[in-house]
Computed example of a mutant assay.
Amino acid sequence: MSKKGLVHIYTGDGKGKTTAAIGLGVRACGDTMKVLMVQFLKSRDTCELHSLKKLEPEFTVIRGFSCNKFVRNMTEEEKEAARKEADEIFQNVKNLILQNNYDLVIMDEIIGVLNNGFISEDDVIAMINDKPQETELVLTGRNAGKRLIEAADYVSEIKAVKHPYQKGISARKGIEF
């Protein structure tokens, strides 16, 4: 009997959703599992990418190139480019999941993609339902919707109680990015 891959969601307004997903991926690599992390709406160079590069080829990262600002700060043209890029990445990752080459797939900020209307929730639910039974799947982002939560096996909400940004302290390299 093959293992059953479950669906995890890390959501909420707190810091640490991506960090939690990466931690799970590193743990999986430690057990010789193959990990794919797909980052949507992120193109900034971050320190975790330097660490994950050392885990290749067991830990593979795919990310976009055009999204270097928050969607709320984008022009309509930039939003359209981000939508196209998100759709291309999503179609690619769906195919990779169906090929069953990865034990764990992390879709970082997929919930943000959904909330901005760049891809449909129906498409993500279909992907969850169509994934190979043994593939573990992690979805991250703020404000996970009810249908997505119902489709998941684990849901962790990371709540912001206090954050240095509230005191005017900017994101720090090696800590926040």
Rank of each mutant, 00 (worst) to 15 (best):
D103S: 04
S43C: 13
F70M: 10
K84P: 05
Q91Y: 11
T46C: 04
N68F: 12
I125E: 07
Q91M: 14
L36W: 01
I110C: 07
E58D: 11
E121K: 07
T18S: 06
K79T: 13
I89L: 15
L36T: 01
T60N: 12
N92D: 12
T75M: 11
K94I: 08
T75F: 13
N101L: 12
D103E: 10
S120K: 13
L96C: 01
T46W: 03
R72I: 10
D108F: 07
N95C: 11
T18P: 00
L55V: 09
F90V: 01
N95F: 11
S66R: 08
F118C: 07
E48F: 02
L98Q: 14
R27M: 13
C29A: 15
N100T: 08
E78I: 09
E48A: 00
N68G: 03
E121I: 12
F118D: 04
M127T: 04
K53Y: 11
L41Q: 02
F90Y: 02
N129H: 09
A20P: 02
F59M: 12
I128H: 06
K79Q: 14
A21E: 04
K54G: 06
E85Q: 09
G30M: 04
L98I: 10
N68L: 10
V71W: 08
N92T: 14
D123M: 06
A82V: 08
E109L: 03
G112D: 11
L41W: 03
A86M: 08
E80M: 14
G64T: 14
L96N: 00
A82Q: 00
N73C: 11
E109C: 07
L24A: 04
A20N: 09
L49R: 12
N101C: 09
L114D: 03
I62W: 10
A21L: 08
A81E: 13
F70A: 10
I110V: 14
A126D: 11
F118I: 10
A28Q: 05
C67V: 15
R27E: 10
K79C: 15
L104H: 05
G112S: 14
C29H: 05
A126W: 03
F59E: 10
L36V: 00
R72A: 12
K42V: 01
I97D: 00
V61Q: 02
N73Q: 15
K69E: 13
K131Y: 03
L36P: 02
S43Y: 07
L36E: 00
V113F: 01
F70N: 09
F118L: 09
K42G: 06
N68P: 00
R63K: 15
D31A: 09
V26W: 01
D87N: 09
V38R: 02
N68R: 11
I106S: 02
R63G: 01
T18W: 01
A20S: 15
N92G: 08
N92W: 06
K53P: 00
Y102K: 10
K42Y: 06
K54M: 13
C29T: 13
L36G: 03
L114E: 04
E58G: 01
F59N: 09
T18C: 05
C29E: 07
V35S: 04
G30I: 03
L36D: 03
K17P: 04
G64L: 10
K69D: 11
S51F: 13
H50N: 12
L114N: 07
T32Y: 15
C47Y: 06
K34C: 09
Y102Q: 06
L36F: 03
T19A: 13
I119W: 07
F65S: 04
A82H: 00
R83S: 05
S120H: 12
Q39C: 04
H50K: 15
